[in-house]
Structures are given as structure tokens and as C-alpha cells.
Design a protein around this nucleic acid. Structure first.
Lengths: 205, 205
DNA sequence: GAGCAAATAGTCAGGGTTGACTGATCAGAG
DNA sequence: CTCTGATCAGTCAACCCTGACTATTTGCTC
């Protein structure tokens, strides 16, 4: 087999892609990148740890996607090392982003794991928890909706909030699913609750 | 502040929850757990690596959720260590599962990261990639739909496939979002493409 | 009855991630 | 003027995960 199977990236952490993307606009030192990431609230879309950033930049350097450019220092503060994008880095940035947009990947949301094991709970308990979840989902939707509307009203182009629209779309679908699931369990005609309860008894003495 | 903040679990890997859940039905050795997980296709819902399983079981043992029960051996095969659930383990299983069902957590799907950086692509390129993505999403939905319908037709209760229904609900919402996004970009009246293209030029010399 | 793939059962080095830690400087309160 | 907390800039040990590796036994084909 000579297939290529989306060969593993040298740096896997998505924070690396964010770093490459910011470096397209010119060389920077890690702390400044960190500040920009916080300012633009990229932490909502990409998991961000202050410590991880330095690790990731090192990894990018080892992989040849960025190079140490200069080391400055102000007063007696720690040195700041400025990194610049290499040609390989520019290529990687483009290629990686293309792949992320193009290929939906199999992921493992925690709720999927929960659903695959939910039979272990008693149906009454499950319904109670699902109702609670529904509330939280509604709260989250409302928060994001308000934030997005506010930001757009302040003049920001919606393109820069499209990831939040996506999140909202998923949250809405999630709510609809959860409502439907509750109904399927509790429906007085053909609800799953009785069969589920019997199954549950057999499992758990 | 005396708040508790959903105190970190001693074992974080969701594979650990799956192990605890299977051990409720009686003591087992890791390899058998591994086999059961594969057989029930839990790997679709919970990331599963053969090697990780042994690590996770060790972690569960260190945390006091399972105990080594006996060590048997057949012929000259490696020993099999049988593990049993402790009371703490039973409690952890229930508590953890409850939390997963009850509290939707902030997650980081890869496509959210992609969307947050998609401005770095030229709009024409983005549209081409999104169309490709849409195709893949449709294929995935069709596959899962067929699999679910087949399994239910074979007599399995839909409760045991509810995680796949959830996945389908999200995939459907994802498709609708992607279609809408493509339209928003390409719409001949008020499409984002022109403004996006100008923004893109300014960024990328 | 030899040869080979698949299944059985598990180990472990290498690399990645987390989160707590250090220590200097700056802005404002009292 | 000095104390406190926030911001600046970065390091590092501990932990976790992945993927590759070993080594036996069973099942199947030729």
C-alpha cells in the first residue's frame, strides 16, 4: 500500500497552528503571541495554556517551521526571544488549515461517551440529569447569542465570529436531541422507561 | 473562596470510566476488557488504544477504584491479572457518569479552531474546501444512518445506539451550518466574498 | 506438517501536556 | 514613600498517552 494517510504533523497541538497564523503577520516573541491570543479570545476555540505555548514554540522550532531571530532584553526582565516564520512554516500553516477545513475528523465529545454508558443509570435518574443538562445548554446558547449580537452591533464583521455561530448551531441541535431523548424515555405510550428499568434491575442487583 | 469547582478526578481518561462500567458486571482481566470494548464498538465513542488500557487500569488501581484480585496463567502465556471493583470504584463510576450527563463541558472541536482562523484563506479557496467538507459530512451521515437502521432492524433496542443518534443530530446540524456559511460567502447580493478578499490582500502581500 | 496470519497478553521508551513555580516590574491606594 | 496586586516572561518536574515492540498459541491453507 503506497497510500499516504494524512501523514502525522510534526507538531500536533492546534496551538501551533494559531502561532503559525499569527507569525504570518511578522516575527514575534512568545509572550506577545500569548497576549494576542488572550486578547482575541482565541482561548474559546483553541485550548490554551500559558505554559504550553512555550513548549509548542520550541516544537515548531525543532520542526523547522520557525527560527529564533534575535534575543532582546529590557532592563533586568527575562530575555525575549523573537521567532520568525520560515518558508516551511508558511507552507505548513496553509496546508494544515486547509486540512482542518476540508476533512471532518472523527472526534470524541464527552457526551457521546456518556450516552454510550447511560444504560448503567436508572431511567428516572437519567431523565433528571438530562433535564438539568438541557437547562445548562439553554444558558450557554443565550450567553453566546448575546455576546455575538453585541459584538456584531459594535461593528465587527460576522466572519470573525463564525466559529461562535457554529458553536450555536451545534448547541441548538444538542438541545433538540436532548428534548427528543427525554420524550422517548418518558412517553406514556411507548416510552423506553419500563424496558430500561427492567434491564437496569438485571444488571445491578 | 471555598468553592469546589468539580474537583479533578484522580483518573481523567474516559477509558477509565468504561473500565469501571464493565467491572460492575464482575471482575475481569485487562485483555478481556479490551476484547469487550472492541466487540461492542465502544471505540467509536471513547478513544481506545490497546496500550492505554493497561495504563488506565494501573491508574485506577493506584487511585483505589479497583484491586488486583488474582493472577492466573494458562500454559506459557503471559499472566493475566484479574481486577475487581472496590466500593470507591463503584461510587466513582456512578458519580462520573452522572457528571458527564448533567454538565455540558466546553470542548474544542477541530473545526472550531479552523473557523477561528479561516480568514487567513482566500474566500474562493475556503468555499472550495467547505464544499468538499460538506460531501464528507453527507457520506458520514449516510454510513451511520445505515449502520443504525441495520442494527435496530436486527432487534437491538435503540437505547444502545443513542450515542449514534446524537452523532447524527450533530452531523446534520453541521451540514446545515456549512451550507449556510457557503451561501453567506457566495451570495451575489450581499456575499462576504468581496470584503473578505480585500481583507485577505491586506494581510498577505 | 510447514508456513503464515491472527489472536492472546502485556511492557515500555519517547514525547506531549499540565499546572505550579520563580522573580522582576509597574500602577495605584493609602 | 511603601505596600499590594496585576502584568510581564519564562522554566520545569510530574504526569499522561501513544505507538511500537515482544513472545506465545491457535487456526487455516497449501
Amino acid at each position: 500500500m503506497t497510500e499516504k494517510k494524512t501523514k502525522k504533523r510534526k507538531v500536533g497541538n492546534l496551538l501551533g497552528l494559531a502561532v503559525l497564523s499569527y507569525l504570518v503577520q511578522g516575527p514575534q516573541h512568545p509572550y506577545e503571541l500569548s497576549r494576542m491570543l488572550r486578547e482575541n479570545e482565541d482561548g474559546r476555540s483553541i485550548k490554551f495554556n500559558h505554559g504550553s505555548l512555550y513548549m509548542v514554540v520550541q516544537q515548531l522550532a525543532k520542526a523547522g517551521f520557525v527560527t529564533e531571530q534575535e534575543t532582546t532584553r529590557e532592563g533586568r526582565r527575562p530575555e525575549r526571544t523573537v521567532y520568525a516564520l520560515t518558508d516551511a512554516g508558511r507552507k505548513e500553516q496553509h496546508d494544515w488549515l486547509r486540512e482542518l477545513v476540508e476533512e471532518p475528523e472523527h472526534e470524541y465529545p464527552r457526551f457521546v461517551a456518556a450516552l454510550s454508558l447511560i444504560g448503567a443509570l436508572h431511567p428516572d435518574e437519567a431523565v433528571e440529569l438530562l433535564r438539568h443538562r438541557l437547562e445548562r445548554l439553554r444558558e450557554q446558547s443565550a450567553e453566546i447569542r448575546a455576546m455575538v449580537d453585541g459584538t456584531v452591533a459594535a461593528g465587527v464583521h460576522p466572519l470573525f465570529l463564525v466559529e461562535e455561530e457554529y458553536r450555536l448551531a451545534l448547541l441548538t441541535a444538542d438541545q433538540a436531541f436532548t428534548e427528543r431523548f427525554i420524550t422517548q424515555i418518558t412517553d406514556p405510550e411507548n416510552g423506553w422507561a419500563p424496558a430500561w428499568a427492567r434491564f437496569h434491575e438485571r444488571q445491578d442487583p
